[in-house]
């Protein structure tokens, strides 16, 4: 009995330790966002007077609304463009072995190239060859990163089970396209949504491309927040508030992501 309880205690200590490592910075940011600059730097940490003044300042003193708007625009557009394309690519690869293993290996390899290697050629393309507005350039870049990533995730959703359903639909009189849109896509929808959410979050948090391909007016949240750290010193308290606001959409999406990812992964259990 005693040793069982001891083991449980040990387990919780270890888990608690890891949780703390993840939670502490977030809690720290939360604390800072609710205090003023002077209290924020005090050690040991103090709570001091709590208020929402930093959250108000985020909207009045910075371009927060525009950054937020830019991020939403880029992430939504990039996801809307890449998701259907990625679904069709994954379908083609799964169903017809289009491109064979080199394609899927290439897709995987593209995820392993350090972004900095790609960003310079892209910068040249978008500044000299096809000059486009900053937001468009960032969106295109995000499509380029997200599409293979999403296709890679989705390839496994178009497996033997959906194939058999499609065959049934084809014999029922459906064209290949009808079978794809009316059977395969709805059946794989949880997985497709999960891939879309992952892509959205990836795009939302993306920094390097957004920084180098954009200009002042096309700053996304990730870039805008980073800029706060340099101009006129670090305005730590409003920065913390802005960071939490930037995180909010991702935090809101996470429960959905989890649900759909689990459903997507259990697609095989059609019976």
């Amino acid at each position: 009995m005693r040793s069982a309880r001891g083991a449980a205690l040990l387990r919780h200590l270890i888990l608690g330790g890891f949780s703390a490592v993840i939670a502490m910075p977030l809690l720290w940011v939360l604390r800072v966002s609710l205090t003023d600059k002077a209290t924020a730097y005090r050690l040991p940490p103090e709570i001091g007077e709590i208020g929402l003044q930093n959250y108000v300042e985020v909207f009045t003193a910075f371009d927060f609304t525009r950054w937020f708007g830019n991020s939403v625009t880029v992430a939504v557009l990039a996801t809307l463009v890449s998701l259907p394309a990625a679904a069709m690519m994954a379908y083609a690869a799964a169903r017809f072995r289009t491109g064979g293993w080199p394609l899927m290996l290439g897709v995987l390899a593209s995820q392993m190239i350090p972004p900095i290697v790609l960003v310079l050629p892209m910068f040249l393309v978008f500044t000299t060859l096809v000059p486009v507005p900053g937001l468009v350039a960032i969106t295109i870049a995000h499509v380029a990163i997200n599409l293979p990533f999403m296709a890679w995730i989705m390839a496994s959703f178009f497996d033997a089970d959906t194939r058999m359903l499609e065959e049934a639909a084809r014999c029922d009189g459906a064209t290949r396209w009808q079978a794809f849109t009316r059977i395969t896509v709805p059946v794989a929808m949880p997985g497709i949504i999960a891939a879309g959410l992952l892509g959205f979050i990836l795009s939302w948090n993306e920094f390097l491309y957004a920084l180098l391909l954009g200009n002042h007016s096309s700053q996304t949240l990730a870039v805008g927040l980073a800029s706060l750290e340099t101009h006129a010193g670090v305005n730590i308290a409003p920065l913390a508030a802005a960071t939490l606001l930037a995180l909010a959409p991702v935090l809101l999406l996470l429960p959905f992501l989890q649900t759909y990812l689990v459903k997507g992964l259990s697609l095989g259990a059609l019976k």
Binding site: M164, L165, E167, A168, A169, R170, C171, D172, G173, A174, T175, I183, V187, K271
Partner: peptide
Amino acid sequence: AERDLAIVFQNYALY
């Protein structure tokens, strides 16, 4: 789709 035959699979393949 144009052969107008109906197939029933071993695992039924219901949508």
